[in-house]
Nucleic acid binder design. Structure first.
Lengths: 256, 256
DNA sequence: CGGCGAATTGACGGACGTCAACTGCTGTGG
DNA sequence: CCACAGCAGTTGACGTCCGTCAATTCGCCG
């Protein structure tokens, strides 16, 4: 692992409080692999032996049943994933695949569990990470069950605007196809939702979105701090009670 | 706290591995309260200072937005809840209210966090608990997004049958009204789903349900171990990799 | 006996999924 | 250099699932 990469991993909330020695223990037998776009890293039901850390690129966490598919989260660097399965030594409940060319670090699950049992500080950090992931999922379920498709889209757009600096116009981070799946609808329906939402001052031009009248859009979206985890982009210095991950776009950050 | 109650708490996976001393520390300044049915213990957005342990009765975890409500879980004794909020010292994302007369133990969140930071073993147990809760929610989202209402009901019934011993007939543990909300549908729709599902050999008589032809019902339900957490009732001795909570009825066991 | 709430049933409408056709872009190979 | 294939995105038509409103029945408890 290169030094720059090590530092980026080290800067994760998970590792920021631990000793250099413990960090070396955990990252001891690790791999850094580069995967092309569309690579399946993990399938639902697979046993999990590594904690994955996305350093570059992006990864989709998805699930399927009875020939239907849905995406539960899209991860951006730097994020860990499948922490929960590693802690329990359990099989994966979601599949993971790269969306673009990605650099991924794989940490030994066994070393991680050992470190947790030896270092209470690190164990606490893992518990905090898991708590944040859990709360991210709670937000996601509330978003899913309490709002309709149009409302989900409206809130997604508001969240994206905030995350990208709050300017009047921003860029959709994913293909619309993928966004639809993340929002729990079909691509056709997302397309219709975009045309409906034009009445609320949203202008779409390819991946460029501009929110002309934020107030009008907010009256539709009714964003709620207990569902939408708005945080100014670049997440800055994080205080004690704010280490919550879980994302404004209702994606669990890490876990599984 | 009575001795019988202490033993029941002690028997929770969370505490089963810790020293007597640490257990006394954590349960030091705790309250045991009895609440009547319908009592609101916690509202969304409230700050959380205690870890709750349901000893008797049952508790609904729910959420609301824009005059809509949904129930995310129904807890049975013995369960802990709002662990995640306690770990992060964060506000509640769900509300909690008793469904029937309930005995509830309230443990100091501060003491719990202190114990986690002092005892790596306990911290690990908390991480395992949180992981199980997280995975329960993942199952819940998959159930919600990938299956239709009829399929959710069918799988719920199969899960209940297993949990209650696998006999041909069993009892619905909640009012149908509540069950509907848990399954993410309206009472009217649940009623219709019950009458539709009669064609698959399900006979309903008040709270009594008998599954006449399990094979036919399973062909409809297509239960999946990656969604439905079937485990024979009474959960027996649990091995290392099987401490997963999260419930076959797709309810997170503890957390929030 | 009367009233309340749970449960059921029917009628209706809206939201959403499905199927199909069409557009525009991109990359590939003749 | 252009023709063509392939895929994302859009649009329309249609059907289904599900929520809403209303009326009714039933059981429980005052």
């Amino acid at each position: 692992m290169r030094n720059v990469d090590a530092e980026r991993v080290r800067a994760l909330p998970l590792f920021s409080g631990v000793s250099d020695e413990l960090f070396r223990d955990v990252t001891g037998g690790c791999f850094l692999q580069k995967f092309p776009a569309g690579t399946t890293l993990l399938m639902e039901g697979d046993p999990v032996d590594f904690l994955y850390v996305l350093l570059d690129g992006s990864v989709e966490l998805g699930a399927s049943w009875n020939d239907k598919e849905t995406t539960l989260a899209v991860l951006q660097p730097v994020s860990t994933f499948i922490l929960a399965a590693v802690v329990l030594e359990a099989d994966a409940l979601m599949s993971a695949q790269t969306i673009e060319r990605s650099d991924i670090l794989m940490l030994s699950g066994e070393a991680l569990r050992r470190a947790m049992k030896e270092d209470a500080q690190f164990g606490f950090a893992v518990a905090q990470e898991l708590s944040g992931c859990y709360r991210g999922l709670v937000r996601s379920i509330k978003n899913q069950r309490l709002r309709g498709g149009l409302e989900r889209l409206a809130n997604y757009l508001i969240t994206q605007r905030v995350k990208q600096g709050g300017g009047e116009t921003f860029t959709l981070p994913h293909e619309k196809r993928l966004l639809a799946s993340l929002l729990g609808m079909t691509p056709e329906n997302l397309s219709r939702a975009f045309s409906t939402i034009a009445d609320y001052g949203v202008v779409v031009n390819g991946p460029q979105v501009t929110i002309a009248r934020p107030v009008v859009l907010e009256r539709l979206a009714k964003p709620d701090p207990l569902i939408d985890n708005h945080r100014p982009h670049g997440l800055g210095p994080v205080g004690e009670a704010q280490r919550e991950r879980g994302l404004g776009d209702h994606s669990p950050q890490a876990g599984l």
